[in-house]
Design a protein around this nucleic acid. Sequence first.
DNA 1: GCACCTTGCGCAAACGATTGATCAAATGCA
DNA 2: TGCATTTGATCAATCGTTTGCGCAAGGTGC
Lengths: 336, 336
Amino acid sequence: MAKLSDVAARAGVSVSAVSRVLSGDPSARLSAATRERVRQAAAEVGYHPNFAGRALKLARTDVIALIVPDVTNSLFAELTRGVEDEAVAQGCVMLLARTEDMHPGGRMFDRLVGEGRVDGIVLQPRDGADPEELAQSVGERAPLVTIHQKIPGASSVVAPDALAARRATEHLLALGHRRIGFAGGLAASPTAQRRADGFLKALLEAGLPGEPGLVTWRGYREADGRASAAELLALPEPPTAIVAANVNAAVGVLAQARAQGVAVPGELSVVAIHDAWTAEHTWPPLTCVRMPLYELGRTAAAALAEVIAGGPVTHRSVEEPGPVLVPRASTAPPRG
Amino acid sequence: MAKLSDVAARAGVSVSAVSRVLSGDPSARLSAATRERVRQAAAEVGYHPNFAGRALKLARTDVIALIVPDVTNSLFAELTRGVEDEAVAQGCVMLLARTEDMHPGGRMFDRLVGEGRVDGIVLQPRDGADPEELAQSVGERAPLVTIHQKIPGASSVVAPDALAARRATEHLLALGHRRIGFAGGLAASPTAQRRADGFLKALLEAGLPGEPGLVTWRGYREADGRASAAELLALPEPPTAIVAANVNAAVGVLAQARAQGVAVPGELSVVAIHDAWTAEHTWPPLTCVRMPLYELGRTAAAALAEVIAGGPVTHRSVEEPGPVLVPRASTAPPRG
DNA sequence: GCACCTTGCGCAAACGATTGATCAAATGCA
DNA sequence: TGCATTTGATCAATCGTTTGCGCAAGGTGC
């Protein structure tokens, strides 16, 4: 591992001069010839700045954490990619962790935040998490940007949930469905609320009543989707279509329909909000509404950079590109 | 952020004393009363060691990187969990990155390895990656453990691929299948070779010839599985069953069978090597052979800790728990 | 010729934690 | 009581990088 003093010796200048050249210090008073000599020496010895030395002096690591409920689920692929690309663009490294490991008071939490290993955090809370608890613990200890929901003292970014749900519902209405169920997230979840709002708005605009019995609030997991479908299909007049508030829940709706011998899309159409690898590999492949999650990730990381730099708390809604329906094989017109 | 000197002031001792108490220095010469006083003061001011100060002095970050081909794919969930749990047990933080980002000469590579951000790397190379290239670049710059394949100068861990493929094939043989296809990984991949070996061994032991036309080498992606199935189903005498060398490829086999109007499992049985969330949520749910990937992850991280500590290069095979067949709905006896 | 300004550096302090070496006080033994 | 050893600390150097400040040399203007 070459260090500054190795470069300095080779270039015949002081450590200070080397540091100023290689760090691009704008106040550096060095001739072009000296600069070139330094750069050449650095390349020759294969110099890379020592992370710890730099972090100690600068009091920052250039590492940001992205914390999501399930690291290895394809649901989070685009968001993860977005945050990472923006982090790289900002000269940072992204560290990925699970929400489950990062609860306040937990050991991982102390390691990342308490020890100064990360400069800030982009956090997608677990569905239904208590915002006050989060604000109390994370918000005052590290720069924080939350995804999908606001908590006091932190910046936040949200996606166009309502519009996405509306697109999903409009697609079914356009196919002719008039009795549409909604398999939503947990009622305490702001994102679940927004998606339900969009669903209801689309119905309203089509002149249909919003029937409480057709809206469920069980959550985003596959098992939650199954339970929602079971509830909706058990109605005296079951829906001919279901909007599922995310892909995992939609997978559950498919499984439950199958278990009950309900054909998709022949007897029941299913649309999922938000697209992912999983959605195109189910059977039948799921019709989805694609959301700008990559852009959401980038915006979140950009907002975090601002907070880290001492900027104000901001709340942003990522509207472009707008939600797009991705037709696949899980939707069709209702039977006669 | 409280520092050592804050604790020292509060406890009325030197910085040195505080450091020795809190770092658990075995050579510390401090009374029990002084120790208790220090611990109390540290708790009162909420002291956490400064990561950068420590890393600089100790010349290590206690961060290890796990690099896999696709971070957000459920295929890697167990492995990831295993590496992480072992890292935590060793007092480390795990940083997760994609193989794609971590190519030698790439920017991320320089950042993690060149700057000393990570103490070592657990690497699952991309299928078919050149071992010599990896050895040349990573192997000599950071402690390294590779998963599934050996490269010169690095420790390695492998899973019982051959046995898993054998279990998959034996299951089909027990159901009565006598014409079995194999949708394998890339021929250059050691793991693909071992899985094919196990497949052929099971056939041999059942007194069946290994027919080259029934073995494909297209790769592990969903699209590869689709192409393999197309090839196998186009044979004059197509197989009544297929062993797919991983879950993503098996998803592709299902899709291709469906596209060709071949019923699973009625006309074609499908078994996937290695279990994952995806496998139980396909339609039909895939019969799989579960492999000890969590244990593989733990073993890899333990091996890395040894290398980091200056230990020898080792090569381990994780055999326990052995591969287990997980029957689901994609296999049945052959027709007539 | 002198004073002032600009250019091109180097010196050294600082960041926080760790630890070898040293010192003072206490204890044990002859 | 004196000497040797042990106990209980502290001092200060080190890790690698950054950056404020000061100095020397050269150039410019009066």
